[in-house]
Simulated scan of single mutants.
Amino acid sequence: MKILVTGTAGFIGSFVAAKLLDRGDEVIGVDNLNDYYDVRLKKARLARLTDRSNYTHVHADLSDRAAIEEVFSKHKPQRVVNLAAQAGVRYAAENPHIYVSSNVTGFLHILEGCRRHGVEHLVFASTSSVYGANTLMPFSEHRSTEHPLTLYAASKKANEQMAHSYAHLYDIPCTGLRFFTVYGPWGRPDMALFLFTKAMLAGEPIKVFNHGRHRRSFTYVDDIAEGVVRTLDAVPDKAVTWNGHAPDPASSGVAPYRIYNIGNEQPVKLLRYIEVLEQCLGRKAEMQLLPMQAGDVPDTEADVSSLIKSVGYRPQVSVETGVANFVRWYRDYYGE
C-alpha cells in the first residue's frame, strides 16, 4: 500500500515508518523537524528511513493547509497514520498556541485531506492523558473521558471527537490509539528515561516527582509500532450501540470509528523503573524527591482487552528488557 505517515522524524513515527517499509509498503513521510528538542536526533532518526527506495520525505508543517493538501494531491495515499503532534504535557503551559496550531488545526488538515482524496483508513495518535481526572483502574476506552487535566490532553481529546464527526459525515474509517508512556531507543529527550540516564551518567541527581509513588504502563516502542501497523490493517466498520442505548465511547453505531488503548497491561512503579535503570547503568541514582506536578496523574494502567480482541496483539516487552535496550542505544549514540 501507499501510506502517508506524519511525524516520521519523531520517536514513534520513525519506528512505524520503518516497520511499514520492512513489509514492503510505500511510505510518504511528513515532518517539519521543529526545535522542540534536539533536531540532530530527529535528523538521525530520519536518516534511517531516507535511504530506503520505498520512502519519500516531505518537509512540511501540519498547520500549513496548502502544503498538506499538496501532499494528498500529489501522492494520493491509500491510508494515513497521523503521529505528528506537539508533544509534552508540561510544555503546553508555556506554549499553548503551538498545541492548538499543530494538534487541532493540523489534524483538521489531515481530516480534510482524507475526505477530499478518498483515504481508506486514518489511524491517529491519542494519549492516555485523556483519562485525566479518572481514577478507576485500569483505564478503559468504554468509559467517559470528559475531564482532561492539561491542554495537551484536551487537544488529543478534540482529535478523537473531530475524527468521529468526519467518520460519521463522510464515512471515513478512523481509529484513535491512546498511547501509554512509550519508551525505548531513539526516544524523546524530554521523557523520564532519557532525563534520568543523562543525569545519572553525569553524576547529577534526578528529579523524582510524587516522591516516586507513580505507577505507569510503560510501553516499549517496538510494541507500540507493531500495534499501530496491525490497527492500520483492521479497517473499522459501524458498530452496534452500547447496551442498545447510548453509543459506546470507544465506538459508534453511526460511524466507522474505534478508540483503543495501546499499552502494557502490567503497570510498573516508578521506583522500580529507576531500579532497573540503576542495574543497567551500574550506578545508583541520587534522587531529588519532589511533589506531584500540576496536571500529572498518580497512576496509569491500560486495559487493552479491546485491542487484543480486535487485532490479536498485546505488548510483549518487559521493562527489564526495554530499559536495557535503551541504555545500550544511548551509550552507543552518545559515546558514553
Rank of each mutant, 00 (worst) to 15 (best):
H214R: 06
E226T: 14
P247S: 04
M191F: 06
D248S: 12
T150Q: 02
C114L: 08
I259R: 02
A255K: 08
P138G: 03
L195V: 11
H245G: 09
V130I: 13
K238Q: 02
A158E: 00
T231Y: 00
K198C: 00
Y220W: 09
C114Q: 05
R216S: 08
I172E: 03
V235W: 00
G212Y: 06
D237T: 15
S165Y: 09
S140I: 01
H245T: 14
S251K: 03
G203F: 07
P249Y: 03
L149W: 02
H117D: 02
N134M: 01
E204D: 11
F194M: 06
A225R: 09
Y183R: 10
Q161K: 14
A255Y: 05
T181A: 12
P189R: 07
D222N: 15
R258P: 02
F194K: 09
D233R: 08
L232K: 02
R115M: 10
V208T: 13
E120Q: 13
S165I: 11
A202F: 03
V254C: 07
C174Y: 06
R213V: 08
K198F: 01
F179P: 01
D171Q: 14
R213T: 13
E226C: 09
L193N: 11
H147T: 14
L193Q: 11
Y257R: 08
E120S: 10
L136M: 11
Y183T: 05
S155H: 02
G176N: 04
R216C: 09
L151E: 11
Y131H: 14
R215G: 05
C114E: 03
V228K: 09
M191N: 14
A133H: 12
H117P: 06
E160F: 13
S217C: 12
D233H: 04
T145W: 04
P236N: 03
K198D: 14
L232R: 01
H117V: 13
K207T: 01
P256F: 13
T127Y: 05
